[in-house]
């Protein structure tokens, strides 16, 4: 299965402990361009730690992170972003005192390296690209609205547009649909999948909603107590007895999977 081109993201034997507790203990996986890979597991399994090692917020004790074959292990989050990694957060994080368009403009201005300019109106810069991104996520009509008054689902779309502003190779999404209504969840992930395939972006996301995972993930990674216990297609993971025992359960309360 070795590809001639290195995968967009490759994690090799990542490990990290906190005060003697092994949060992540030797996780290796990769994500290819245009693919959606889900990272699931019980609370405390190490998903967040894993994510934070990929985006640079935490330095791993051991192991390597490669972005398109280049090592990025231990770089600052800002540097990793500059190399082409976009992020969305579990709880939406937007600039509430700016309009929807200004949020995207800010990301574009930063991407262009102009965020230290002391003069010239910021809201006149990079209007075209900002509107193009907003159109892509279906938020063009609300460009003038303040982010502080948007509905939750719309905020998630703005976040997606902001995350796309640096033309990322890799998108890291931490529980992208948390707090959304079921139908909105499917719509947001369908949109993400479409954009990822169009632009050849690799997407790694964590998620608790199994409907979303099984509907959209090309591959599912299951983490338990810091170790990867399963990896495969939705069907394979679903029927894995170990995964059922530690995570999925009988399926009565989660939709009968």
């Amino acid at each position: 299965m070795s590809a001639p081109v290195p995968p967009v993201l490759e994690a090799r034997d990542l490990a990290r402990s906190f005060g003697g507790v092994k949060a992540v203990d030797g996780a290796s996986f990769s994500v290819e361009a245009g693919k959606l890979v889900a990272l699931i597991g019980p609370n405390g399994a190490g998903k967040t730690t894993c994510f934070n090692m990929l985006n640079g917020q935490i330095k791993p004790d051991r192991g390597e992170v490669l972005l398109a074959g280049q090592p990025i292990t231990g770089l600052a989050p800002r540097k990793i972003w500059r190399l082409g990694v976009g992020r969305t957060f579990q709880i939406t994080a937007t600039f509430a005192s700016m309009t929807v368009r200004e949020n995207v403009q800010m990301a574009l201005i930063s991407h262009a390296g102009k965020s230290w300019r002391l003069f010239g109106r910021a809201d006149q810069r990079r209007l075209g690209p900002a509107d193009a991104l907003l159109a892509q996520v279906g938020m063009a009509e609300q460009a003038e609205h303040a982010c502080g008054v948007l509905a939750y689902g719309d905020l998630k779309r703005v976040e997606l547009a902001v995350a796309l502003a640096n033309e990322p190779k890799l998108l890291l999404m931490d529980e992208p649909t948390a707090g959304m209504a079921p139908q909105e969840r499917i719509a947001l992930m369908a949109l993400t999948a479409r954009i990822a395939r169009q632009r050849g972006i690799a997407v790694l996301f964590t998620e608790h909603d199994m409907d979303v995972v099984f509907a959209h993930a090309d591959r599912v990674l299951v983490l338990d107590r810091g170790r990867l216990i399963a990896s495969g297609t939705s069907a394979e993971v679903r029927s894995n007895p170990q995964v059922r025992a530690v995570y999925l359960g009988s399926g009565v309360t989660s939709g009968g999977h």
């Binding site: 597991g41 019980p42 948390a178 707090g179 530690v246 995570y247 009988s250 399926g251 309360t253 989660s254």
Partner: peptide, 14 residues
């Protein structure tokens, strides 16, 4: 009560 919890924990909650 079930938000953000693994399905097995949700079952215990019920």
């Amino acid at each position: 009560p079930s938000e953000g919890l693994a399905p097995v924990i949700v079952e215990a909650m019920a």
